[in-house]
């Protein structure tokens, strides 16, 4: 493994009245691609949100380190500026804020990305071309009235613009048609090629992984990481589903 970029150690977390994640240990090296798979309701998205620092979830024990720093108690904006990016499964609509104003503001917040407005517009134009997006998107309100595929493209646009060290892609492939999936996959490839950042891809669909070189695969069932293995584990899941892991987890629970 390369230098560890993200280290999640013994995390127990959940909402106020419901524990969701149990004893999660996960390490992602700089530049690595990890895949987190599991059946619906396993807690995959929750893990992504806990890493991002969503206050809707409480961390009851354990630590999260990023780049060697303990960020367990840091707010989401600090984690973002440190280099973590969470791509939403269902990007939020923000009426009243045009995409241009938003992109410009979040870019200018990062000293390493500060640039003149002229260069910024050129950069956004390049990325929009890469993602087959029309420039007219920029004057529209953030995610308002966009189709599911367009919203995911806007997430990819932000990913390529912000160049994070770690991108957590939460079911970015869900609800996409073949063409949109192809464009989003291109965006992910471009991120890997241009930024060399690490990826934690949360999915239960293997299509989006076809173009990626996966370093490690993790399987989550009922809030626990029950298996970890090389990229070949994805093929195994593709062929046999999650049942084997659910059974193993259930028997483990029985034993406990």
């Amino acid at each position: 493994m390369h230098d560890t970029l993200l280290r999640v150690s013994g995390i127990n977390a959940g909402t106020e009245d419901k524990p969701i994640l149990h004893d999660i240990d996960l390490a992602v090296g700089a530049g690595e691609t990890h895949v987190l798979m599991g059946p619906n309701g396993a807690g995959k998205s929750t893990l992504g949100r806990v890493i991002m620092g969503d206050p809707a979830y409480q961390v009851n024990s354990g630590t999260i380190e990023f780049g060697g720093e303990d960020i367990t108690d840091e707010a989401a904006d600090k984690r973002s500026l440190a280099g973590i990016f969470l791509s939403y499964q269902a990007p939020v609509e923000v009426p009243g804020v045009p995409l241009y104003s938003y992109l410009r503001t979040i870019t200018q917040k990062r000293p390493e990305l500060k640039m003149t407005a002229r260069k910024f517009r050129a950069r956004v134009g390049e990325i929009a071309d890469q993602l087959d997006m029309s420039g007219s998107f920029l004057t529209r309100e953030l995610n308002v009235g966009f189709s599911g595929g367009e919203k995911k493209k806007i997430e990819m646009l932000q990913l390529l613009l912000l160049r994070p060290k770690l991108a957590i892609l939460d079911e970015t492939d869900s609800g996409l048609d073949v063409d949109a999936l192809s464009v989003v996959s291109r965006g992910i490839e471009a991120y890997r090629a241009d930024c060399g950042g690490a990826l934690l891809v949360i999915t239960h669909n293997t299509r989006i992984l076809e173009r990626l070189s996966v370093d490690r695969t993790h399987v989550m069932v009922q809030g626990r990481l029950v298996a970890e293995g090389p990229a070949s584990l994805i093929d195994d899941i593709d062929a046999h589903g999650f049942e084997q892991f659910e059974r193993a987890n259930a028997s483990g629970g029985d034993r406990a």
Partner: peptide, 22 residues
């Protein structure tokens, strides 16, 4: 909405100011 904007690096105050800038 606040959470989405904070996830992209804005504080609460900056998120609110974004609406004014817009």
């Amino acid at each position: 909405q606040i959470q989405y904007l904070q996830d992209r690096g804005l504080t609460l105050e900056e998120a609110e100011q974004l609406y004014v800038r817009a």
